[in-house]
């Protein structure tokens, strides 16, 4: 429990279990691939990696406003993903894997 330790794996104190986050990442990636927006999504996510914590904090601060428009559960999960850079990397890898399998299947 180091004061300045950077957690190697996502911290265990999150609101959602690893499975819940995983399934949300899968759904999110699937929607991006289905809409054929993998390329801009990969670029945006890769470039936004250093800013993920800013995004997370913005989601927390603007949460009460955003929740008026979008599903609060999804917003909370998105906030959780943004809280750690490793989640973003996982999302990127999932998009890449899904896109490659679609390409191979000839879709």
């Amino acid at each position: 429990m180091g004061m300045w330790t950077i957690p190697e794996t996502p911290p265990k104190d999150e609101k959602f279990s690893a499975e819940e986050i995983d399934s949300f990442i899968q759904t999110f990636a699937k929607e991006i691939v289905r809409r054929k927006m993998s390329v801009p999504a990969v670029i945006a996510l890769e470039m936004a990696k250093p800013l993920s914590f800013l995004g997370h904090s913005a989601c927390v601060v603007m949460g009460p406003l955003i929740e008026m428009v979008f599903d609060p559960k999804k917003i909370e999960k998105m906030t959780s993903i943004l809280s750690e850079r490793c989640h973003i990397e996982r999302l990127l890898e999932t998009i890449e894997t899904m896109e490659n399998s679609v390409e191979k299947a000839g879709g």
Binding site: M1, G2, M3, P7, D13, V61, G63, P64, L65
Partner: peptide, 29 residues
Amino acid sequence: FVFTMVLGEVSLLRLNLDKVSRKVDGWGY
């Protein structure tokens, strides 16, 4: 919206104070 922002700021503060009090990895940040 200002009051809503206050609510958001309190959430941010609570979230971070909670991590500090539980001394999770990297609580110094």
